[in-house]
Amino acid sequence: MEPSDTQPDLETLVCLCEEAGRAILAVREAGFRVDAKEDASPVTAADLAAHEILVAGLAAGSTLPILSEEGREVPWEARREWQRFWLIDPLDGTREFVDGFDDFTVNVALVEAGRPVLGVVHVPASGTSWAGVLGQGAWRWQAGRREPIGVAPRWPPRVLASRAHLDPATRAWISAIPGARLERCGSSVKFCRIAEGRADLYPRFSPTCEWDTAAGQAVLEAAGGVVLAADSLAALRCQQGESLVNGHFIACATPAWRERLAVLRRQAVGESGRHR
């Protein structure tokens, strides 16, 4: 794609994420060392290799700024001026990658006025990709085929939770739903499973960063779902302040369940809406 501020071509972005995914798999095949970042989270050569590929590819096709988990820190004074920018997590689910699971992803999102409006999520281990553009739809790429996807809400819901972060607040919230079926998996795959109709809810009451969620949020919302801040049930937003840490949120197959979610919030965590 030619360098531009205009909306990029999804096929090109999916191919770029696939290239980053192949680099991740090459590192896994060769063996790798696990280092710790300043926040004690793990980082490997696979994270860095994918970062380099994504940044080079996006810079070659767009003049928009790029914010990556593995890139240099950009001060809020500069970031607050960005109306449109790329937000990427070169390897989401590094813990899953390190522990030998396959549900780690490459995440690329386009953020506009604080809202993820385009997202690509790629699973290197399976070769599956999901992408969505707000107002245009969402799709899954698998075995060389592209097909449209959409949410398929069911109640009692099929609930997804993090493999590594199933905390007491999340357990209490899920236990307040009679008949809910729980499945645990890692990374931004959870958003995509809701987007393609295989699940209904993903509550997250432990910390995430904006690059963990933006691409998956874009895919899910393009497919008809919504990602809501857990306290206000307003749409989750990026670029709201200096911190890149998200508040608690609930990814949901349909915005029509807001009232149900409000009732669950009161039942599980009290009228104040604060998680114990």
Rank of each mutant, 00 (worst) to 15 (best):
G127I: 06
Q239R: 15
D5E: 15
C17G: 01
A30Y: 00
Q142D: 10
A234C: 12
W130A: 04
A195H: 10
T254H: 11
L228S: 04
L220S: 10
P148A: 15
V74P: 14
Q240P: 01
P207R: 14
F205W: 12
R115V: 15
K190Y: 06
A109T: 08
E38R: 14
V133F: 00
E29D: 06
E11T: 13
A138L: 02
F205H: 12
D5A: 13
L236S: 07
A229S: 12
G132A: 10
R33D: 13
C185A: 14
A45G: 11
W141E: 09
E18H: 04
E73A: 12
V226K: 07
Q83Y: 04
F32M: 03
W82C: 03
T44L: 03
L67Q: 14
E19L: 13
I53W: 07
L134D: 07
A215E: 03
L87S: 05
V74Q: 10
I177A: 09
V123K: 10
F32W: 05
R72Y: 07
V120A: 01
V133A: 08
W155P: 01
A172K: 14
P168M: 02
W257C: 12
W86M: 01
E11N: 10
R22D: 09
S188Q: 07
R274A: 09
T63M: 03
T213L: 15
A138I: 07
Q240M: 14
T94N: 00
A235W: 05
E271C: 04
S243V: 04
A229Q: 15
P90L: 01
V219S: 09
G273Y: 02
A169V: 09
E73S: 10
G57S: 05
P207C: 06
L64C: 04
C238S: 10
Y202K: 15
D9N: 11
P8W: 01
D35H: 06
I53F: 03
E38L: 11
R95M: 06
A45I: 00
G119M: 05
G132D: 09
G132F: 08
L10C: 04
W82V: 07
A152N: 14
P203V: 00
E2V: 08
C238A: 12
A268W: 05
A20F: 05
L233A: 03
P255Y: 08
A256P: 00
S126P: 05
E81H: 14
E147T: 15
L10N: 03
C185Q: 14
L261Q: 11
R163F: 14
T44G: 13
F205A: 14
P178K: 03
R198A: 15
L64G: 02
R95D: 07
A59C: 14
V263E: 13
F97A: 06
G225I: 06
E81A: 13
C192G: 08
